[in-house]
Design a binder for these strands. Sequence first.
DNA 1: GTCTATATTCAGATAGAC
DNA 2: GTCTATCTGAATATAGAC
Lengths: 243, 243
Amino acid sequence: MVRKPARSDVKAAASTRKPNMREAILAAAEELFSTYGFNAVSVRDIAQAAGANPGSVTYHFRTKDGLLLEIYRRHCGPMNRRRSELLAAARRVRDLQDRLEAIVRAYVLPAFTSGSDLAGGGTRFTRLRAIMSAEGNEVVRKIIAQTFDDTSHAFIDAIHESLPHIPRTDLVWRSHFLLGALYYTLVTPERVSRLSRGSADGTDAGHAIEELVRATVAALQAAPLDEGAPRKIPAANPGRVVT
Amino acid sequence: MVRKPARSDVKAAASTRKPNMREAILAAAEELFSTYGFNAVSVRDIAQAAGANPGSVTYHFRTKDGLLLEIYRRHCGPMNRRRSELLAAARRVRDLQDRLEAIVRAYVLPAFTSGSDLAGGGTRFTRLRAIMSAEGNEVVRKIIAQTFDDTSHAFIDAIHESLPHIPRTDLVWRSHFLLGALYYTLVTPERVSRLSRGSADGTDAGHAIEELVRATVAALQAAPLDEGAPRKIPAANPGRVVT
DNA sequence: GTCTATATTCAGATAGAC
DNA sequence: GTCTATCTGAATATAGAC
């Protein structure tokens, strides 16, 4: 995906010792951040991986946060656009059960497939988002609230249309669980492989999607807490637990 | 929990300027790690919060990793013991539906209530575990595989007994999703509050547990992927996505 | 406009004072 | 046995060379 320079004259060669150093830095940063987290990776690590000088990173992106910001800018647009497309298509599905499943799929799929360029770009970026939310990065927190909340609301509303008898609040919780499950699967896929004793491959994104969609659709359809069938109060949990 | 010194003579007072500095360091570290993550917090930060000298931390715990290890040692024992107790009780529930719910509750509850001493200790520790799994800390990875896999297997097996017609592999996926949902709720509770437009409080652990249990029980009971009713191949996902 | 050499602050860990 | 003063290396960001 590196654009070949139009002319390879001396001047151009001199001013770009490595073709598109900026892109190389971005790619290296994305790879390292999504693997080790933001805080664990230094600007020096990134520069080294990209074959650049540490200061070169600062020149292109001002700060380490700026670099992260640019990675988000790259991915958020395409990803949310794809989500909107898929959601619009899902809403046109007639059968209610099928529609709900299509909506969930429309939410999950772009997290894996999206990404402007490389194969696995979407997965890598979503993994990065998972790590960033755990690390509580302040820069990212703002981006998320600004960029993703609209999409999240749109999905919750669409789900609510398919399940009008379930209070919106419950659907918020359940779609929140969906995102948590999605993130966790991308962060520690090897745990699935381990606990299944090899009968499942946690890194198989296609399979993960299917399992996640199936589980989520069932969870969304569950009776809400208020109007559920009367249940015994479990001995283990007599009262509410306070944080 | 701070043991009072048997004698408060001059020598004892001199050797302990602050009572139980070791405990103060542990408490400060747990608080900071579970709030900002492991990599974002420096030994100096911890020392300052505990009113200690940075080197004092190294004396008590050798390394920063050692400090983390000790925090895990403190919590894992009580937590898994409580889980075993609750699981044993749950397995004795006769009604299959109720039993399944009790099992899930036995898994989730100790993540909130456990913790040797302070209120919210369990929640704080589980939040820490969530962050650590995202940061991919190598020290923790080993502890988890050693300490938690037995418990996880026990729970999956118990669930499988309640749902024998569902392949164990699917149950592994679904209980994995449970843990992810639990972690994510502890990591970003404010997102629930935001998306619900204030009608839910993400930090209300009691409510979170109820929502999580309800959703998970439904997810666990869903038809497995293999033998589900025949479904249309969704246009959006013609093939498997490769990571 | 792009990158290298350098400055300054701060990290984790040590060796010796109490 | 416990903690303080200090060392060494690495962090981000700058200011100036190309």
